[in-house]
């Protein structure tokens, strides 16, 4: 491979070399990256999963297990009927306030 094409390959982000499954170094790299990504996603996973559980199931522990009976009830409550202080209109009011601020600010 000439130097010019090598430079082009680098600049466009592609690399010459064996395929990833034939190269233990790259395999290790990939494994490291993917496990780091999974670690980074853990809090999001927990939050999403817990939002689908019932209150009893949450009290039982088992934070990482899948919900026995997934339900969107908590989402509905959080959107329209959860209480913050004295007002019981969920997060929707605040959400539309944020939208209004962004739209006006443009």
């Amino acid at each position: 491979m000439s130097l010019a094409t090598q430079k082009g390959a680098r600049a466009s982000g592609r690399r010459a070399g064996p395929a990833w499954y034939a190269n233990p170094g790259r395999l290790g790299l990939l494994a490291l990256l993917v496990s780091a990504a999974l670690g980074f996603l853990l809090p999001l996973y927990v939050m999403g999963l817990t939002s689908l559980k019932s209150m009893e199931e949450i009290r039982q522990g088992a934070l990482l297990s899948l919900p026995a009976q997934p339900s969107l009830a908590a989402w509905r409550a959080a959107w329209s009927s959860a209480c913050t202080g004295v007002a019981c209109e969920g997060v929707s009011a605040g959400f539309w306030n944020s939208v209004l601020i962004v739209v006006r600010a443009r």
């Binding site: 982000g13 592609r14 690399r15 790259r26 790299l29 990939l30 490291l32 990256l33 993917v34 780091a36």
Partner: peptide, 9 residues
């Protein structure tokens, strides 16, 4: 790592 493994970047 991301710079070296561009496919998933």
């Amino acid at each position: 790592l991301i710079e070296r493994e561009v496919r998933l970047a």
